[in-house]
Amino acid sequence: MTFSVPRVDISAYVTEGTAEQRAEVARQIDSACRSVGFIQIVGHRVPESITSAFVAAMDNFFALDLEEKKTYRTPPSINRGYSPPKSEALSLSLGVESANRMNDFFEAFNVGATAADYPASPGLPEIEYADNVWPNVPGFEESVTAYFAEAARVARTLTTIFGHALGLEENFFAERTGHSLDILRMNNYALPPGTDIALDGDLTGMGEHTDFGIVTVLWADQVRGLQVLGQDGGWNDVEPDDGAFLVNLGDVTARLTNERWMSTLHRVKPPIINGTIERRRSAAFFHDGDLDAVIDVLPSCIDDEHPALYAPVTVGEHITAKLKGSRAGVINTDAQRESARVLSSKR
């Protein structure tokens, strides 16, 4: 069976589509979520001017000297600011120990939704809804903020489609995302000059992992490196189509649907050309849900042949365990189902 990522045009949900057109989009989304868990999304109506300015801002930040970038680091518990190369290990987020801990060579910069963004939800904890750290790069904050708003709009459009595809009440996801833990992570896969590292087949850009929340909206270069685990246990290269976002499901959605919809494992292994790593950039917008939202398996996804696979958990409890693995090196012991898939893959 040939692996492919379905392409879905969501314009009927962005503009005034008919009921029939929206039903067809929901049907296509349901099929993609059942079979692959990754989708090429077009028709999103994100202006190219906003995306181009955002990518330029990313480039300007990552072009800074490494020591200057390190001044924008935060403690591992604060999911904001700069992460230098080899300071994280995504595989630990799902309980898989790598040969060399904290060996993912990507560098990243994170911004997120703050407590001030949710005035209707007073008293949100400062750690999870922390203020952003903005680098001294002209135009960076403005360009990143504009793109963040567009990516958030696309993510919320997708949850509306999810609700229709799953036959849920109209406000199901809205009730669980009023103060969502939304994070935009900008990634750069290129080692700084002079970095001492062996360029071999085991080099890890970003280790095997599932995303943590409801849905991820990914902008990426059309450069090889992203690999998705197929149902045959093999890893498959995936690149975005022209003008498309790559969208994938997170663990929260897999738990809600009792794995009817999968949180698909993926990793990044950028190619090595003429002895150097081919640079690759990406930006993942994680729409994770409210910190205090309880995630329980939907009754419609349980029957005699499909008992509930997960106990109820809050989004905050789940995300905290995942982040302790990836950012603080504390192996996650509550991800047995995901780690089993990694360990059985054709690595």
Rank of each mutant, 00 (worst) to 15 (best):
M1T: 13
M1Q: 12
S4V: 01
E16V: 13
G17P: 03
A19P: 00
Q21N: 11
Q21V: 12
V25D: 04
R27P: 00
A32R: 00
Q40K: 11
Q40A: 10
V42C: 14
V42G: 12
P47D: 07
E48D: 15
T51C: 09
V55P: 02
V55L: 03
F61V: 10
F61W: 04
F61G: 06
L64I: 09
D65Y: 09
K69T: 07
R73C: 11
P75F: 07
S77L: 14
S77K: 15
N79H: 14
G81F: 03
Y82L: 09
S91H: 05
L94H: 06
S98A: 13
A99P: 06
A99Q: 15
N100P: 04
R101W: 05
R101K: 13
D104H: 01
E107A: 08
G112K: 10
G112I: 08
T114V: 12
A116K: 12
Y118F: 15
Y118A: 05
P125D: 02
P135I: 04
V137Q: 05
S143A: 10
A146Q: 03
A149F: 02
A149Q: 15
R153W: 09
A155S: 13
I161L: 02
F162K: 00
G167Y: 07
L168I: 05
E169Y: 08
R176A: 06
I183W: 01
L191V: 01
P192Q: 12
T195D: 03
G201F: 00
L203G: 03
T204K: 14
T204Y: 10
G205H: 02
M206A: 14
H209E: 05
G213M: 08
W219T: 05
A220F: 07
V223N: 02
Q227I: 13
Q227G: 08
L229E: 04
G230C: 02
E239C: 12
E239W: 00
G243N: 06
F245R: 03
L246Y: 02
V247E: 05
L249G: 10
L256S: 07
L256C: 05
R267N: 02
K269S: 11
P270N: 06
T276A: 14
E278M: 12
R279E: 07
R280W: 08
A284H: 07
F285M: 07
F286M: 09
F286N: 05
G289W: 09
L291C: 00
L291Q: 07
L291M: 00
A293Q: 08
P299R: 06
C301I: 13
C301H: 11
P307A: 08
P307T: 11
P307N: 00
A308I: 09
P312A: 15
P312Y: 07
T314K: 04
I319F: 13
A321Y: 08
K322N: 13
R327F: 12
V330C: 04
V330H: 09
Q336E: 15
Q336C: 11
A340D: 13
A340V: 05
